[in-house]
Design a protein around this nucleic acid. Structure first.
Lengths: 161, 161
DNA sequence: TAAAGCCTGACTGAATTAGTTGGTTAAATA
DNA sequence: TATTTAACCAACTAATTCAGTCAGGCTTTA
């Protein structure tokens, strides 16, 4: 099982996309600012998300990314799979060749755990996450912060002008 | 959440210990041979397991390790915690300071997942694992292999003598 | 007293993460 | 049409972790 910031970043970014879906394509620069993830790292993640057809892109000014399906048809497991290539606790890729060709003593335990985790994450869609109170609260805070820093940049632009 | 060969090795070794509990202390050399884990790596893992009071050691010739509790009182989560220091999917250690001091958008999701995994693993004891058919099958194979390689070494000792 | 075991710490190669740098291409707008 | 915006792409890198080795201890008991 591989669950690092990589997968967390991907899910966070996808949720940000879902939250701001009503405002047209969302640029990676916006996501970067709101979620505190480096722009170029986001580019790498979205390349994979796009190859897995979870998002579609709109190029040029005013462009950005959009979800490629309904929010309830994208679950967390799909997003993590897309960037991690595999969500697997076995280490032998379920093949059973963990101990020079044979299955190791605990092979089946890790198989069970893998499917447990996968089941859990695949039952949670972006739509589900959006309805959560804690998600709403954090999203509102992030929007406020982004607006504030935008206004700041307007002021400093005026000062330097 | 951190689940790598490290935790898997630890659980495998503990299960080996449980299986061969009837034969007195089990040496790391035996575990190393049966489970295909390097001896010095096992030493590192068992140092942590001992500090966490999951095993006790018997020194001197014929010595080795033994479980420090009943098999049903040692669960998989305890073993993984002992060698990994933490089994946590959040990345902020449940503190909520994931996004420069504030909680990130998906913080609670990872909290939920962490406890899901922990619950699953803490409900499986070494005693539970021992009753599994797949575990028994693999254990028998490993014992046969070890015996075979021991007999081989006897023969080659005779030849060189 | 020596063999067999444990303990410690320092070190290493490989892989992965989390980026950075420096471009290019496509589309909208001025 | 030139410029700007933002996606796209590829190579590189610093830091970390994993998995394991190595060297040299120290303890216990046959």
């Amino acid at each position: 099982m591989r669950l690092t910031t990589k997968g967390r970043y991907a899910v966070t970014a996808m949720l940000d996309l879902a939250i701001h879906a009503g405002e047209g394509p969302v640029s990676l620069a916006d996501i970067s600012e709101r979620q505190g993830i480096s722009l170029s790292y986001l580019e790498q993640l979205f390349a994979k998300l796009r190859r897995n057809e979870l998002v579609r892109s709109v190029r040029g000014p005013g462009g950005g990314y959009q979800l490629n399906r309904e929010q309830r048809d994208i679950d967390v497991a799909q997003v993590i799979d897309a960037v991690n290539e595999s969500v697997d606790a076995t280490g032998c890729g379920h093949s059973g060749g963990c101990q020079d060709g044979n299955t190791c003593l605990t092979h089946h335990l890790w198989c069970d755990l893998s499917s447990q985790i996968h089941d859990f994450l695949s039952q949670i869609s972006l739509a589900d996450l959006m309805t959560r109170k804690d998600v709403k609260t954090v999203a509102e805070r992030q929007d406020r912060e982004q607006l504030a820093s935008f206004e700041d940049s307007l002021i400093s632009a005026k000062v330097t002008a």
